[in-house]
Structures are given as C-alpha cells and as structure tokens.
Nucleic acid binder design. Structure first.
Lengths: 196, 196
DNA sequence: CACGAACGTGTACAAATGTACACTCTGTGG
DNA sequence: CCACAGAGTGTACATTTGTACACGTTCGTG
C-alpha cells in the first residue's frame, strides 16, 4: 500500500466554511444562505461545499451549533463569575441589556434558529439544547422555578430589545429580575396554595 | 365610453390568496412559500399571484398582517374582558399557558415574522406594531413598567412553551406574573434607590 | 523520482423560482 | 346583440438553486 491516509490538504477548511456560513446568517438571515453564497464568503470553491457537507441543511445546522456553543459558553461564564444572588441578578441584567454576552446580531441569529428548526430535526434539537443550557446556568444561582421564569424573561426581553432597536431601562430590568427570583419563597399565588 | 369600471370578476380572490399564504406559513414556514405553492393552496392560477400582488414579499407581508390582526384582536379582547387586576393576571396566564389566544402554530408564525422582518421594511414595521399592541393592551391593567416586564415574560415563555412542546406549570406562571405586577410599587432594586 | 490513492474542484444539469406579457375571458354600455 | 375596456390567465424565460461527478492536484510511499 502507498499514498496518504486521510491527511487533509487544508485541515481548517471545513471550520472556515462554517464560520463564513454563520457570518452570512447573522448578516443576511438563513433565507440568503446558499452553497454559492457561503463558498464565496469563505473564499473556497463551490465543490468544497458538497465535499465537506452532505447538504445545505448540514452547513446551516453546523453554523447554528457554533452560535449556540459560543453563546452558551459566554452565558455560563458570565453567570459562573457571580458568587452572590445579587451578582447573579446583575449578570442577568447585563445579559438582557448589555451586549457582552450576545450582540444584537447574535440574538437575531437565535431567532433564525427558532424558525429554522422546522427544516431539520437537528436544528430543533439544538434549539431545545439551548433552552436547557440557559436554564441550567440559572439554576446554579436560583431555584428551579425562579430559573424558569427568569429564563423566559431573558428570552422575551431580548426579543423586544432586538425589535425595538434599543435596550430597556436597566433599573426596570433589575427590579423585574429581583421580583422573579423571589417567587418561590413568598408563595404569591392569589388564592389558595396550589404549589406542590 | 363603455365596458366595466373596476368591477372584479372574483372580489374575494385576493383575500383568499392571503388566507392560503398564511396557512402555508403556519404549516411549513416562510421558506416553503412560493408563488406556485400559494397559488396551488388557494386553488387559483399562477397568474393571479402577479396580478394581485407586486411580488412574493407583498404576499408574505399581507399574510403576516392578517396573523397580527387576528392575534392582537384576541389579545385585546381577552385582556379587555378582565375587570380586576387579578382577572388581568389570569388572562395573562391563559395567554402563556392556554391556546385560546394563540395556537402553537400561530405563535410559530410570529417567530417566522421576527425572522422575516429582515427581508422587508413592512414586516419590520409589523413586528414593531405587534410589540406596541400587546404593550398597550397590558397598560390597560398594569403600570407601564409592569406592562413592559409582563409583555417580555409572555413573549419569552411562549417561546419556551413552543420549543418544549408542552405548556409550563400554571401556578408557576401565575406566581411570576403576580410578582412582576408588583415591581413598581415596592421599589425592589437591591441597593440604593435608582428609580426615577 | 515516479506512482497511486486519497484529496479537492470546475463544470454541467435538472429542478424550482420570480416575473413579464401576449393572450383569452367577461360583462357592461350603446 | 356587438364591441370593447378592463379583469384574469397560461406560458415562456432568465436566474438561481442543490447536487453529482469526471477530472486535476497533492503528497506519502516504495
């Protein structure tokens, strides 16, 4: 036997294509993604696309995977740095109002993912994973109930922020987060104790 | 002069096309929308599409307009029926957990809109309108601050619900909403009074 | 160095898309 | 009943898309 055994000519090529695909999604949306557009952006020939990926769905899914990985890393990191409940609250406020954890473009990308999950089961799983990751990061600091509510608040307020084009008032967000972190301790259901 | 003056052969045709387009969006997503697909679904010839609409974007935007109109009507109606703050809270809980205000399909459609707004300024305006409408409906019952927070919570929890596939615990949602409606009255910012 | 196997790519092609437009149909005024 | 203006449509076409695959290219081995 002779010849090379599986040694790629350009080992980083596949990853560079994924990077380019993500850039394209964040800039123009999934609707504008095509083999040719991604190839042009990555500076690789068209043939590379079909060589490295089984289809365009795989490219898009890989790009979304990269986005979710990036975001969840920063998400976890930001929350892990907090040592007190107050610091955790502040981290949440920063997630919603600031752009240290996710830029506007990246959040727009997450919404693209939420829509794209109809096109492939892999993307649907990815979206579900993202939900779980953010919830887990929050349960490090809050009760499960509070984490779920805060998670929902983050999700929703980020959308509003994205569509409005301007971040909400930090003090208001802080007050809202603080209020939600207390929901399980003060049993605030209007009439009768339904809680388990 | 003679001949008919602007009397259409089939007055409802345009609207039926819009209905079909919305159905298609809710079932398959905007990615699967095309002149031909919509025409087939509406049972009209392809030529009708270019005759009644300036382009595919106009069809999609009209469909989203229909969706937002439907949803905001029910939204307003449900909240207007409430006479006390407690009833308003309960209405919000129903919006999040139930499907009387928006079915899962319809909420999926709203996310499609959030992504699609990159394709046309009209859709972007529509998304912004939808935000304003839901906020206005809430300010009938809550303070502006509380309305904004509750609005965000609805948005986010509805997404989670949509992606999880199952509605959240009603009691938890009720507690969260109740907590948020109180944020402006109890000045709950951790340290020092930042509020205006 | 030469050779061959695996790596990688340019090109070709079928399918689908948006859109234009020459055409037919329809009903109203004369 | 006829003519005609405007409503409505079938078809054609340029583009863009995903994908296959025959062909060049590279590099370890002998």
């Amino acid at each position: 036997m002779s010849a090379r055994s599986g040694i790629p000519n350009d080992p980083d090529r596949r990853q560079r294509i994924i990077d380019a695909a993500l850039e394209l999604i964040l800039d123009d949306g999934t609707a504008r993604v095509s083999h040719r557009a991604v190839a042009a952006r990555a500076g690789v020939p068209l043939g590379s696309m079909t060589y490295h990926f089984g289809g365009i769905d795989e490219v898009v899914t890989e790009a979304f995977t990269l986005l979710v990985t990036r975001l969840s890393d920063r998400y976890r990191q930001g929350l892990a740095a907090a040592t007190t409940p107050a610091e955790a609250c502040e981290a949440v406020v920063e997630i919603i109002c600031g752009d240290t954890f996710a830029s506007v473009r990246e959040m727009a990308g997450i919404f693209e993912l939420y829509s794209y999950d109809r096109n492939s089961p892999d993307s649907a799983r990815l979206a579900a994973d993202w939900m779980g990751i953010s919830e887990d990061a929050l349960t490090e600091h809050f009760s499960l109930d509070a984490a779920r509510a805060v998670d929902a608040l983050i999700e929703g307020w980020t959308i509003h922020c994205h569509l409005d084009g301007h971040p909400p008032d930090r003090d208001l967000v802080r007050a809202a987060v603080a209020a939600l972190t207390r929901i399980d301790t003060e049993n605030s259901t209007p009439r009768g104790a339904h809680r388990e």
